[in-house]
Design a protein around this nucleic acid. Structure first.
Lengths: 137, 137
DNA sequence: TTTGACGATGCAACCCGGTTGCAAAGTCAA
DNA sequence: TTGACTTTGCAACCGGGTTGCATCGTCAAA
């Protein structure tokens, strides 16, 4: 499916290089979030900085979004409606303390929050931690 | 009120040293969360490791709790019912992108979350980001 | 086909928060 | 006073994240 990944990149205005295709396909295949460290381990031949900049490019162009999970940032593919204009798929994420995977709870709605008078809400960072179905039990 | 801080420490089984009293009083006075970095700046004469261990001791003994805000951990005083046995004051926190202060929204209730089948929830990390009443406007 | 511009890559180095080992200093009770 | 235990200070380290810079690849204009 190299073709479709290239298209995917093109749709977000990202020049498709070998590295970028590899990273994108890894994210597509893997279905869970990946951190810079994971990518470093996966693509041990290539450079940290390149991977870092690849992720940053993807994020800027609205292809993935970063979630901070206890100190490190993991990246997940965005749903359709994100672009360079902004990220619009705000939803909770679940971090499994067993397998250390992070998954989107895209179907879960973000609850409403009542802030004190005069407060202005821009962003909600919601991480649920526990064990996934495979690790619980 | 040195006396009351000492009592505060004693209640949690913490030996009251000069450093610990200073840090506790700083936390009491300041009313917002403090990071290790902030403490380093505030008590620039003293050592990072000491401050670090002070915070860790406080946390372990249930006097403060740490909240991860975009990469760095900030610490806030706990409400009454925390101890070495565990932390029981789960609530959202608000991080102001203007003044970089973190405050407890202790009055706000943690919403319920519906997880997929078989998932096990242990901990909720909820950070609201935006501007506080002083920084908005 | 050559040249030049620009983007992508690799390498090295750095920053910063967090953390640990170890020796010195302090505390306290026997 | 001694010895055990705790706290502190110093130094060093670790890992994630980030940047500067030189090199390389690509592509289009000359």
């Amino acid at each position: 499916m190299k073709h479709s990944s290239e298209k995917h990149l093109a749709q977000h205005g990202i020049h498709p290089t070998a590295m970028r295709l590899l990273v994108l396909e890894y994210l597509l295949d893997n279905r869970t979030a990946a951190s810079l460290g994971q990518l470093e381990r996966e693509f041990y031949r290539s450079d940290k900085a390149t991977l870092y900049r690849t992720l940053k490019t993807f994020e800027k162009k609205g292809l993935i979004h970063g979630v901070n999970v206890g100190g490190t940032t993991v990246y997940l593919l965005c749903r359709e409606n994100c672009s360079e204009e902004g990220h619009f798929d705000v939803h909770p994420h679940f971090f499994c303390t067993g397998c250390a995977k992070t998954i989107c709870l895209s179907q879960a709605k973000m609850p409403r929050f009542d802030l004190p008078e005069g407060f202005d809400l821009h962003e909600v960072n919601l991480i649920l931690k526990g064990r996934c179905d495979e690790c619980a039990g």
